[in-house]
Each structure stands twice: as C-alpha cells, then as structure tokens.
Amino acid sequence: MIEVSGLTKRFGDKVIAVQDLSFSAKAGEIYGLLGPNGAGKTTTLRMLATLLKPSSGSLKVAGYDVTTHPEDVRRNIGVVNGGMGLYDRLTGREILEYFAYFYGIGKIDAQKRIKQLEGALEMTDLLDRRSSEYSTGMKQKIVIARAVLHEPAVLILDEATNGLDVVARRAVLEFARAYRSKDRVVLFSTHIMAEAEELCERAAIIDHGRLVAQDSVANLKTQSSANNLEEAFFRLTRSVN
C-alpha cells in the first residue's frame, strides 16, 4: 500500500530533513512512523501526501507513484494532522460538503456519508453550527471526517491527537482502529509511544531523517530488551546519537 524507498528531502543546501529512508506498510495494518521532534516525520508524510516533492528516491501510495500521478494519490489518501484547522465561518456540514464535491460525491451521497460519520465519530448535533464555535475535539473530528469522506485506502495521521483531552484522544484512537480493514492501511505518526504501542502492529523509527529500525512492535521491544515501546524507542534512538 505504501512503499517508500531511498527517500531523501533537502530544504536548501543545509537542511536534510529526510535521508535515504525506506519502509513499507501493507494493507490491513496500522503502521507507526515514530521519531522525536524534528526527526522528519511530517516532511515524510507531506511527501506521501503530494504536498512536497522528494529530492530523490521513490514513493508509491495505493499503487500510484506520488511524483507522476499526484492526483490519483490524493484521491486515495486521507490526511489528518495536529495543526489542521477549519473555515471558521462555515458549519461542519458545509465544510464536509465543500470537500465531498472534489471527490465527485453527489449531494445525496454526501448527506448519507456525513450521517454515517456523525454516528461513527459521535459528532452529535453540532454539525449545523459555525465551526468557530467548536471545541478543539469537535474540530479534530471534523478534520477526520473530512479525511475519510471518500473512504480512502490510505489514512495518514500525523500527531492527530495533538492538544486533545482524554476523551477526544480516545475517540481519535478508536476511530483509527476501526478504520483499518483488510484493504486499507492507517499510517500513524507520533512521538507519543504509548499511543503507538496501543495501536500499531509494526513501526518504523526514524531520527535525524534516517531510519533507525523497522519491525513489528513486539520485535522492536525484544530487540532492545525493553519492557515497553517507549523504552525501546529511547534505547534505539540514543544508540544512534
């Protein structure tokens, strides 16, 4: 589903945000992309999402090459990150309708899909209020609903629980778990190891733009004789520095 090989991203002459990174995630799994601040997670995900162009290396998402078929890639991905915001002066429903249009989802189908998501994400009766009135948690639910309107095969979550309270955070994690299915993959990026440990089967750990380890979460722990993923993460990233 996601194949990253030899991926490098430079910003100008000095910054190498991602360097020779390779990993792959298969359909049916929740795959973790883990790393400390500044490791290159967001940069990698932005390249996957066609927002940034790779300096070199190849990237395939849902069978499409990101550089040559960006629009096919966009049709098959949903992206959520912690910093995403909404159009204050539109209602949640209007925002979802606005984006549904770009996926060719008709008016009636859009309403059906919104109804479904309203239930799945427990968005209660707020959909017809201006989004400026929403709580951070409700906003993030709209961002997520917008990302999965078209039921993409690839869902990319980048620090998606940033700034959320316990309840909202739980809702996001539950949704990610429920979204995964045999023909879909969830790419879950975070620096919070507890979340990754709870959710992911396999993970890549990156630091300073380079791959540190890629394995199942269980193997990552035994490999570094750690009790939990946080300890493993700590040992693995420190051994490189």
């Binding site: 999402a49 066609t50 927002l51 629009e71 966009r74 049709r75 991905i77 992206v79 990150n81 910093g83 995403m84 915001g85 909404l86 159009y87 204050d88 984006f99 770009f102 996926y103 961002v143 917008r146 990302a147």
Partner: peptide
C-alpha cells in the same frame, strides 16, 4: 494560519 490550506491541497483538485 488556520491550517486549512493543507486540507485543501491534499484534495483531488489541481
């Protein structure tokens, strides 16, 4: 500033 640009740009619109 709102963080909505990225949402728009990952949609299938050129």
């Amino acid at each position: 500033e709102r963080g909505s640009l990225e949402i728009l740009l990952v949609s299938p619109i050129t």
